[in-house]
Amino acid sequence: MGNHRKPSLPSRARLAVLTTAVVGGAVLAAGTAHAEPTPTLASVKEQVDNLNKEAEQAIERYNGFQEKRQSLQGDANRIQDKIARGQHALNELRTSLGAVAGEQYRTNGIDPGVQLMLDSDPAGYLERAAVQNQVADSQAALLKQASDAQRRLDQDRAEATAMLAQLDAAGASLDEEKKQIQAKLAQAEALLNKLSAADRARINAQESAEKAKAAAQQAAAADRASRSAERPAPGAAAAPATGSAAGTAAGTTAGPAPASASGRAADVIKFATAQLGKPYEWSSTGPNTFDCSGLTGAAYRAAGVKLPRISQDQWKSGPHIARGDLQPGDLVFFYDDIHHVGLYIGDGKMIHAPRKGKNVEVLPISVMPYVGAVRPA
């Protein structure tokens, strides 16, 4: 019988080396497989801002499609009503034609010459014949009216069919834009949800700091402009601060001081001010929530002026105003594609509805890429 010796156990030192190698290798492999770079707060904020910007662009397109669909629906309703009235008129014409045709059938069975010979009252017959000729003429006129009515009815039905097809297309566009908006907002929310409460607070603090910085820069620019305007020319007496000097001293960017709001502008600003703190909601025109163009449209509506629904169309609602000539009540627009609008209130500030998750607020117009201003006609 051969010797069966138990294999010798590894020493404690060797066990320690093996354990370290195995565990270290596993950790290294796991780190290599799953490690992802941790996004910085700045990169998260940039992504969220971009997603919100894209969402707002889609919201304005959505509002445009919605306005188009409402207009098409109104046109479709009117043409359908026109078709119903046309069909009723055609039915009445056909009834009249049927009566005339029946009368002709009853009297045209005998040759007119024979009828005259057999008639006991030839003079009466001739009178009846004249009447029959009038009936024939009337029938011809009715036939033409019926033919024209049928042609118009066919045209109206073709127009209604085309309009309903446009309505379906507008509805499909609405659905697609709605999906895009929801997807962008969901992505932004998902990014924010990955952050801790402290990090989200830091992002909000950064936004507040950016707004404060913009306001301070604007105030400094206004102060510099004021000092420049107040400095008298060599040999000239200093003039009282009026016009542009007074305006910049009050905090405007340049040019003459904005007149204190009165009349229509006062009504517009009064309404907008009353909405401060109300939540932003995309595609909303009030009364409890607003998007950007929904707020400006509602403010002007309160003053008896109807503005187009979307910001790009509001941009065409009146003459364009130079930045230095801004007055309270003017509409101010932002970004190259003009997808954001606010209401100027003076002092280089506006009231606007910002984006989802925010409320209607006052903000310096220098915070966003300014494009221009309009004074609605």
Rank of each mutant, 00 (worst) to 15 (best):
Q187D: 15
A172G: 12
Q145Y: 09
D148S: 09
A186V: 13
D148A: 01
S147G: 05
S147P: 03
L164M: 09
N193T: 11
K184L: 13
E176R: 00
S173N: 14
A136N: 11
Q150F: 04
A141V: 10
L153C: 06
A190H: 10
D156W: 03
A186W: 14
I181H: 01
L167N: 00
Q182C: 12
Q187N: 15
Q145I: 08
S147I: 01
E189K: 14
L167A: 10
N193C: 10
Q155G: 09
K194F: 08
L142Y: 06
D156Q: 09
I181W: 07
S173P: 00
Q180S: 12
D168W: 11
K144N: 08
A165W: 10
R151P: 02
D156A: 08
D156S: 10
A170W: 04
R151Y: 06
K184E: 13
A140Y: 14
A198C: 03
M163R: 06
L191H: 04
R152G: 07
L174Q: 04
K194G: 11
A136L: 12
K194E: 12
V135R: 09
E176V: 06
A169C: 00
A186N: 15
R151F: 11
R152P: 00
Q150N: 10
G171F: 02
A198G: 02
R152H: 03
L164A: 09
E159Y: 02
A158D: 10
S147Q: 03
L192Y: 06
V135Y: 10
T161F: 15
Q150V: 10
N193P: 07
Q182F: 14
L174C: 04
K144T: 04
Q145C: 00
A197V: 14
S196L: 05
D137C: 02
L167W: 01
A162E: 14
Q155W: 05
K179Q: 15
K184G: 00
Q155F: 10
S173V: 09
L142C: 05
L174E: 08
G171M: 01
A149M: 08
Q145W: 04
D175N: 15
E177F: 04
V135W: 04
L142M: 02
R151W: 11
E189P: 07
N193S: 13
K178M: 13
A149C: 01
Q150S: 07
A198R: 01
D168R: 11
L153S: 01
A197C: 13
Q182R: 14
A183K: 07
Q139H: 01
N133I: 02
E177Y: 05
Q134K: 15
R152L: 04
D156F: 02
S196Y: 04
K178H: 14
L164P: 06
Q166P: 07
D168Q: 12
E176C: 03
A160Y: 05
R152T: 03
L185D: 08
Q139R: 09
A149V: 00
E176K: 05
S196N: 03
N133K: 10
T161G: 14
L195D: 02
L191M: 12
L167H: 01
A158F: 02
A160C: 04
S173K: 12
M163G: 05
A146F: 00
A169W: 06
T161R: 15
S196Q: 02
S173Q: 15
M163P: 00
A165G: 07
A136F: 07
G171R: 00
L153T: 08
L185W: 00
A146T: 03
